[in-house]
Design a protein around this nucleic acid. Sequence first.
DNA 1: TTGTAGGCGTTATCAA
DNA 2: TTGATAACGCCTACAA
Lengths: 340, 340
Amino acid sequence: MKATIKDVARVAGVSPSTVSRALHGSDRISEPMRRRIQQIAREMDFHPNQMARSLVNRETRIIGIVFPDDAGMNLGNPFYPAVLQGLGHAASNERYQMLLITGSKEIPAAEAARAAMDSGYVSGLILLTAEDAPPLEANVPVVVIGHPTDADKRCYVDNNNVQAAYDAAKHLLENGHRSIGLLGFESKYVFTADRRRGVQQALQEAGLQLNHAWLFPAGACRTQAERLREVFAQPQRPTAVVCMDDLMAIELARTLRGFGLLVPQDVSLISFNNTELGRYHQPALTTIDVHPYQLGVKAMQLMLEILSGKTAPPAAIDVPFTLIPRDSVIKLNTGSKTHA
Amino acid sequence: MKATIKDVARVAGVSPSTVSRALHGSDRISEPMRRRIQQIAREMDFHPNQMARSLVNRETRIIGIVFPDDAGMNLGNPFYPAVLQGLGHAASNERYQMLLITGSKEIPAAEAARAAMDSGYVSGLILLTAEDAPPLEANVPVVVIGHPTDADKRCYVDNNNVQAAYDAAKHLLENGHRSIGLLGFESKYVFTADRRRGVQQALQEAGLQLNHAWLFPAGACRTQAERLREVFAQPQRPTAVVCMDDLMAIELARTLRGFGLLVPQDVSLISFNNTELGRYHQPALTTIDVHPYQLGVKAMQLMLEILSGKTAPPAAIDVPFTLIPRDSVIKLNTGSKTHA
DNA sequence: TTGTAGGCGTTATCAA
DNA sequence: TTGATAACGCCTACAA
């Protein structure tokens, strides 16, 4: 049987409340007494039962981490593990715990999250998805990683995806590209919509338009291979593509090779997420690091600040991204045009 | 304020114990009464506080999931997310929750796991690493995913890695390969040692030996590029390599291309983990699916069985693997030899 | 500075 | 079948 506070009290010959005070930095106790009790507690391997503590403190020190239902679709993406690591490090520094909330076939994640709240498991909720339309009437603080639709009322941590995509497109434009496609657009994901907007903005500033025929969904290499082939068979084809993810870029590069087109000689690629795989790809991918670890750290820190009352909702935290120029973007020789 | 059992009792005009019974399938209550109370509880949006329940029941219905400290190293590997999904589905079916336990810079995962146990957060522990030398004197059940060194005393879920690697090597041998290398061996990981043994076994049965100069560690493509170049420059070079992971295989394929060697024409590759990326790689990778999702499901099921007393430690559960033949292994034309 | 008493929300035991 | 009571382990007024 594990030792309780009463056991420690008995051994120390004091009352349980004295033990409690000795162990929680209360100032209503003498220093010698504190030391003596701490020593005894250590010897008895006493650890306060957190369930009992949370019952009286009405705070569990557990943060629920809600996974998207389609996390399975993104299994190959190192994004989630990196975020988790960030969340974990920030949490454990403050002795907080994380409850993993995933959906199942019968129970969608949103419902599981609600159940976790209702049963008092969690003191807060961090959503790894901006799309799950989490209930605003939550009775615990909610922090979203990503860009919720009703952002102005919420607490969230995100990159500036418009800006990131703007920079990506700008990078291509500065390298002389004027025919730019987009791979991985999915209207249901706010971040892809944002990025599309960023690309459009950059193009417009350059007096160009985003060609809708060059807008491809995430699985295009597999599901729309024919359409891709047609587009890239045209003389007027994209000379560069912004890809939502390194993996997509790699897939696209391979697909293009099947068409006899090489990256970067024939088509330049810029993508997102700075994966290890992209770094060692041939050619090494020019990519934007969104710093998922930092997203996790900041999200957890924001949550803890809200819980401690230091910050009040709504709150938006921007995590800076980094454009990493490598070899998948080539300077286009457009003759006089580039000097115009 | 959230409704408590007392609130429900007051509204229903009964005692709290009656409400408790109505809500937990006790038979010591009349059917009309049960229905009436359940109705009222629903209307009041009452959900029993799990912290209070676990206090009196001495069972939290929370399973701690311990991540390896170096999970960051394997970020690109979809293994962990898939396992998590399996764990999550199996858990939520039984209304169990998962507490995510990761290490941090200051606190190694093993210590965090101990803390979670000590503070009564978890009713059980599932280790996503076989190497963390989890304390056997745990006061909650422990299930290991992978192959612990002291396997005979433990509960664990794993593939038969010796057999899997044996099958992989056999597959190569059957395709005429007799010069077989191994990429990704790390003595500290039991599973790579097991796989090495499996390869050795298959080779020995074919009257061959595993050439130690053809045994490469995980990062060899980056850290030992020169050694690789030398080995593959020899006339007597491996015609096939068993890779511990699809990503390694892909990296190796690219490295070999740099040496002017093509997969599978010059070198055949068989790897592990059946990643999406490997499936769409050119050539599509012949790979062994270890079914990480199933590993998760089985691990959680085993845990729940132990908690319910249906199973007593030790227990070993074998999750079958699947060899998926694709295009990265080519039949070697060894002339008369193959007909010998 | 320390001890006593009551309660956090729930359930199990016993009595009615 | 239902209710009263005590307890799970801890914390915090309040009293001493």
